[in-house]
Design a protein around this nucleic acid. Structure first.
Lengths: 196, 196
DNA sequence: CTCAAAAAGCAACACTAGTTGCAATTAGGG
DNA sequence: CCCTAATTGCAACTAGTGTTGCTTTTTGAG
């Protein structure tokens, strides 16, 4: 007797159709993004979407976790300043693309939707954690003292970019990313993120 | 024949009742905040609210503009580092209080509500502009070179605080505010915000 | 090929936000 | 005090989101 999940066949097809439809609609701005519209674009009944994902945020979260599983190349050029600059440019590219819209959509519904909050926070935490390697490498090279707070530094690096993405509606250009990286580098070198 | 607005009497009473009701409900978390609930708490019909403010965001924006009109004491201690630290602590206090919730609520609905976006941006732009005085004073004292980008520096100072307020759900404690200020000071002193 | 479980479709429904038309109230000049 | 315009209250209505019960289709093991 067949009991349990059903990973093959139509289920996967529906799942894929919904996710790609959501991706497509996301490009036109998430302001008009709705479960019913996604279902319609996917050629699927809205109940299927609701039953599987519960929420619009559920779909978006699923979409974001696809990006989360992608491997990102953490810069390792042998110099802290260059690494941080590369990192800032990397974050910038992510923000100006599709994941940027996803994060915006999820972050803005985070206060009202605990699951959405968890998804964004999880994504950022993971990415930030990976990025800490840049600081750790600098420590290993002796560029920074042992005990430097890598997490705090990465947070400081990313924050201005996120502020522009989510609140201030100003362009996140390369110049801006570079200057943000330079600011973080200067702060690190000045010992701001050393343990007290 | 009486033509025009009607600033006196019941109109103002209703307006005040709605705003104070909104303020009160905001303290219990804006997740459950809704126009109907506010109207009910104010002892007013919801149509009155909709007609006057159009939106929930309209009410919140009105509320925020009350704070915007309050005078904030920009620190001027004679030292850049101390000024920025005071400033960071000032921002922190604003965020942990009522205006913090207001800004969160408005910022999260900004992507879907252009008016809300405008209100938050206007508020922050104004506050940031005032804060630039701190950098300008340092320039006047000769602590920083002429032409230093005050706006960019203040943005860098505020960003990490806003990131925690809006996305990362970690405490915005004094220690964090102080370190953020120190990072910005270091970047300023290293000449990161000087014109190229 | 058969069949039971699982998933999807369908349609009706509940609920909430926001709108509209009309009646009742109120401000404030004459 | 009277009268007109502004404002509010009230109730019905629209639209869109999400839910539920049931039927139909599909999967995959035997």
């Amino acid at each position: 007797m067949p009991v349990g999940q059903r990973p093959g066949g139509r289920s996967t097809r529906v799942r894929a159709a919904v996710l790609t439809a959501a991706r497509g609609l996301l490009a036109d701005g998430y302001a008009e993004l709705t479960v019913e519209r996604i279902a319609q674009a996917a050629g699927v009944n809205k109940t299927s979407v609701y039953r599987r994902w519960t929420d619009l945020e559920g779909v978006l979260g699923d979409l974001l976790s696809q990006y989360a599983s992608e491997v990102v190349p953490i810069p390792d050029t042998g110099d802290l300043g260059t690494d941080l600059e590369e990192l800032a440019l990397l974050i910038r590219r992510g923000m100006t693309g599709e994941p940027g819209e996803l994060i915006t959509a999820l972050a803005t519904s985070a206060p009202r939707n605990p699951r959405a909050a968890q998804v964004v926070r999880g994504f950022l935490t993971e990415r930030f954690r990976l990025a800490e390697a840049v600081v750790d490498h600098a420590i290993a090279r002796g560029e920074l003292p042992r005990g430097t707070d890598a997490g705090a530094a990465i947070e400081a690096l990313g924050a201005p970019l996120f502020l522009r993405l989510l609140v201030v509606d100003e362009p996140i250009d390369e110049e801006f990313a570079r200057r943000t990286a330079a600011a973080t580098t200067a702060a690190l070198r000045a010992g701001v993120f050393e343990p007290r």
